[in-house]
Design a protein around this nucleic acid. Sequence first.
RNA 1: GGGCGAUUAGCUCAGCUGGUCAGAGCGCUGGUCUCACAUACCAGAGGUCACUGGUUCAAGUCCAGUAUCGCCCACCA
Length: 829
Amino acid sequence: LPGRAHAAIATQNKVEKMLAAQGKTRNDLGRERFLERVWEWKRKYGGIILEQLRRLGASCDWERERFTMDEGLSVAVREVFVRLYEKGLIYRDRALINWCPRCKTALSDEESPGKELPGKLWSIAYPLADGDGEIVVATTRPETMLGDTAVAVHPSDERYRHLVGRYAILPLVGRRIPIIADVHADPEKGSGAVKITPAHDFDDFQVGLRHQLPQVVVIDEDGKMTAEAGPYQGLDRMEARARVLRDLEQQGLLRGVEDQVTPIPHCYRCDTVVEPALSTQWFVRMKPLAEPAIRVVKEGKIRFHPPQHQETYFHWMENVRDWCISRQIWWGHRIPVWYCDRQHMVVSRVTPSSCPECGSTSLRQDEDVLDTWFSSWLWPFSTLGWPERTRDLEVFFPGDTLVTGPDIIFFWVARMIMASLEFMGDIPFRDVYFHSIVRDPEGRKMSKSLGNSPDPLWLIDGATVEELGEFAKKNPSYAKGVPAYGADALRISMVYLTPVGGDIRFDHTLVEFGQRFANKLWNAARLVLLNVRAEDEPLPVEEIRAEELSLVDRWILSRLRAAVEAVRTALQEFRFSDATRALYKFVWNEYCDWYLEFAKEHLDASAEPRRRQVTLSVVLAVMERILRLAHPFVPFITEELWQALPAGCRRVQGVASIMVQSYPQPEQTLSDAHAEEAIALVQEVINAVRNIRGEVRVPPQARVSLIVQWAEARHQELLRESLPYMARLAKVAEVKFETARPRAAASAVVGRMSLFVPLEGVIDLELERGRLRKEIERLTGQLETLNVRLNNRDFLARASQEVVERERQKKSDFEARLGRLQMCLSSLD
RNA sequence: GGGCGAUUAGCUCAGCUGGUCAGAGCGCUGGUCUCACAUACCAGAGGUCACUGGUUCAAGUCCAGUAUCGCCCACCA
């Protein structure tokens, strides 16, 4: 179900910026016309992200697009507001909130994240009102002293006991303020005395309430000083700070300055320093909503992946504070509250025509709109028709899995859980998967202001330097433009590169991984299709008798089963990166590197017809499973290739899409330990020969003989049968089983067998000696550590029987192998 | 101040419940245009698994501490 939120503040800012470019403000247009402009903007740009999703192949139900400002969702918002109000969970109050002086609106705590910045801590002396003496307080915001209405000390602080109840004179403004005793003052911090500014500090606000202190507002909604600030009136808050400090300095009241790093809340939309401000706003009482939401996660009804995010969730939930939901902007859901001219308040689902209390028809709706998240938190059910009891709700609620970023646990995840429990009486989803955050190559979070976030469409379609514009200048690795990697390449690369629980430093060159994978898949399929003739009738593998399958067929089917199992397990456990790893290994290192090479042997014209038919059937069957298995990661290319397969390979005839085929299941019957063991041996032999050829510099075209010593009968048979494969993959012309060691031969040991590649004349004896010595050295080292272990009485006594036995076996294997290698080495003399 | 995570080859990352001597991709070196793929194939070099202790017969793998980096939370004296 694709869709998006209306992003109230961000969108309004965007449109206001456009107006500003024309020298206009929203007030010039008025509310109605301004909103028209926003809708226009939304129509123009709001679809971009959905288009990106579409191009990435997200398999949404594109006919069900939803938007938080849709009529239906707006009905849900009003319903929720009224219900919570009636339940006493929504209230209106004059309190301290986070205020962004640039956006000119209240923000929630979550929208005002603290950023640690270097600052200073100033100590200021307040002279006592009666007689001599002073009391020193410290602050990082000297300009707020203009609004001080008390100085507090801890009740049990002996140093100040004699001052409690007396008065200090607030410098610069000359106000007489009481010295009070309150536990808020921490004797350990600073001088132990703290200035109290109820209108501009969250703690002080509480202290003010406890002691009925006046709330003196000295900073207005623009961040400028008010008339209460006396001579500082009209100054910007930062300017005022400098002036206050200068004046205090001149009056000799500054008692010290220290450097201090302090977390300062910033507007998450415009990054302006947020001001704690006194104002009348709407709030949601959160505690009652949080309790059940904590429970469902504690009880495992909702599971987080990776689970450590649960701690973050619990911490927030357990310390949750009331949620300020009103915003002083225009773009959003208007608060469903009306006031009549006699100040009666009407909270209503529908626009009232008259005041139910006094009958007045002169009603004015609350000017404010709601926080965007007040509609987003309803998404799991508001999009399905709630508050009506629709069929969609019945079918699709609750959902299965929420995939989202850990940065919106509080904004969205936590609140959706609360809302669903409150209004639906059920959880919204069972699993929450937190994906990685994509960072730029320097590790910085991608953001619009940094301009370091590439458009996925550039990566998919490619982009020239001109098309990248500013972006290419700011980001060095894009200085020459971006090649077209394709959507599949982008998708699988992102999944592959994403560690569970970690972030990813993204650079477009990383997408080469996916590009190569897609290319490999494409070419493998080409090879397969090239071998299908019109008259071929591939058989479903289930219909081929086991005896007719070759060893390599049984091997690849067995490996396929393991791969399917590995991918499925990884997906079930939300280890998506592991899933792509397993897929990649199977496709590239088993199917392409080995099986297709083996299969070529049976696919060419000279092959025996039945053998060829069986091989082709297996080749196709495995390819078909691969395409389905890979489809979630590379949907476009797999769909394309799957369509190209002969119809007989597909499970359902005449169906248009790979999507409707079920995801591959591990088929237990295909497991074949014997085939796996046998092919592993063949691979080892081929690798050994290749290693010799590579290291001893056998000319690539030269064919070689292979002489095998100490081979058991079954291995002799296996290797004889495998000669065609060895010929193809290691240019082995013949394989002979002899007891005599050939002269001037390169050698290797596989299992208990000695392999010799006679290279009379060609061989560089020194190269070969070096090879063997290196191997002998390695083995000797390993044997040594084994011996130490096996000679350790503690090990024998304490380690499990099983482990000891395994180590013994290993020792005898190593010794045998070492003996063989030494014989090989001495035979060169 | 509290919490969480990371630290493994030049780079990006795997290594689950401790018992093959550490793996992949990229990059690098050497060799191949072998009829699916040079976006490929073959071979190779490269790591005191951040540091210090501890537990254990045995530790990248468990515990404690240190360092560096990152994230989140916290009332900005």
